[in-house]
Amino acid sequence: MQADFFAKKRKSSLRFFVVLAAITICAIIMTEYNVVKGFESLPRAVTWALGNFYPTQESLVKLPNILKSLVETLLVSIAATTIGAVFAILFAIMGSNTTKINGFFGSISRGIATIFRNIDVAAWAMILLFSFGQSSLTGYFALFFGSFGFLTRAFVETIDEVSEGSVEALRATGANYFSIIFQSVIPSSLPQMISWVLFMIETNIRSATLIGLLTGSGIGFTFNLYYKSLNYDIASLVVITIVVSILLIESISNYVRRVIL
């Protein structure tokens, strides 16, 4: 029986890789991508980066302005994530099979979350540009909508997995709906929810760089400004500050996860 199981797994894996290889080959043919030329260009790209894309002593003068833009990006990302999490908790409670008020509101909540989750933050930024123009507010709402959709889905699954047993126990004792929410659902789900929020903050900080290119704000706009003006030394300094900030936020996030989980 065990040999048959592993044989089936190997066949499934083989079929997956065959399909993946076929899709890759079709994509190469359709896009007329030259694989050989692509690999040949890598050494030239690395040589150019090592010779041009590095910070110099003169570029350090711009570091205060870069850090100011970076702080703006970090604050927008954190604000969008935390506010999105508040709304996500409300919609997750209404959309969860464990805590939903009725099937109608549950379907509406999950449907709204699905729509917001499946539209990329870059697409949200382009849509919102028509209403708010190039500003930090556009980036904030783009990150907020993306965070709201993702976190609602994550919170729904968390509530369904973590709280089902305790919810049934409270219902058996005759507890009302709000007692169940505040005495069982939120306390038992909160550590995992915080973990999801921290993950979303990390993701939004990465996404905010791209959003800044579109909305003309934050660290993304700063990078685009110096890169397009051929100030590669300053642009490289921007990239380094972004990488360092992401690594720092990720280390803090991992530490908090270890403490709460």
Rank of each mutant, 00 (worst) to 15 (best):
N52R: 10
F53V: 12
Y54P: 02
Y54I: 02
Y54L: 05
P55H: 04
P55F: 09
P55E: 09
P55Q: 07
Q57L: 15
Q57S: 15
E58L: 14
E58G: 14
S59A: 15
S59M: 04
V61A: 14
K62F: 06
K62W: 06
K62M: 07
L63F: 08
L63G: 01
I66V: 09
I66T: 00
K68N: 15
K68G: 11
S69I: 02
S69L: 09
L70Q: 03
L70A: 07
V71Q: 05
V71A: 14
V71C: 10
E72A: 10
L74H: 03
L75P: 03
L75E: 04
V76G: 07
V76L: 11
V76A: 05
S77F: 04
S77V: 02
A79I: 12
A80Q: 05
A80L: 03
T81H: 08
T81Q: 06
I83E: 15
A85N: 07
F87C: 15
I89T: 11
I89S: 08
L90K: 08
L90W: 14
F91I: 03
F91P: 00
A92S: 14
A92L: 04
G95Y: 03
N97F: 10
T98A: 14
T98F: 11
T99M: 13
T99A: 11
T99R: 13
I101Y: 14
N102Y: 10
G103W: 03
F104D: 02
F104E: 02
F105R: 03
F105W: 13
F105P: 05
G106R: 12
G106E: 01
S107M: 14
S107L: 14
S107N: 15
S107G: 11
I108D: 00
I108H: 10
I108S: 03
I108P: 12
S109I: 09
S109P: 09
S109Q: 10
S109W: 13
R110I: 06
G111L: 10
G111H: 08
A113E: 01
A113C: 05
T114S: 13
I115Y: 03
I115M: 08
I115L: 13
F116G: 01
N118M: 08
N118E: 12
N118T: 15
I119W: 06
D120M: 12
V121C: 00
V121G: 00
A122E: 01
A122P: 02
A122Y: 15
A123T: 11
A123P: 06
W124T: 01
M126Y: 12
M126G: 03
M126C: 10
L128S: 02
L128P: 01
L129C: 07
L129H: 11
F130H: 03
S131G: 05
F132Y: 09
G133N: 01
Q134V: 05
Q134G: 06
S135D: 01
S135F: 08
L137A: 13
T138L: 02
G139I: 08
G139N: 00
Y140N: 00
Y140P: 00
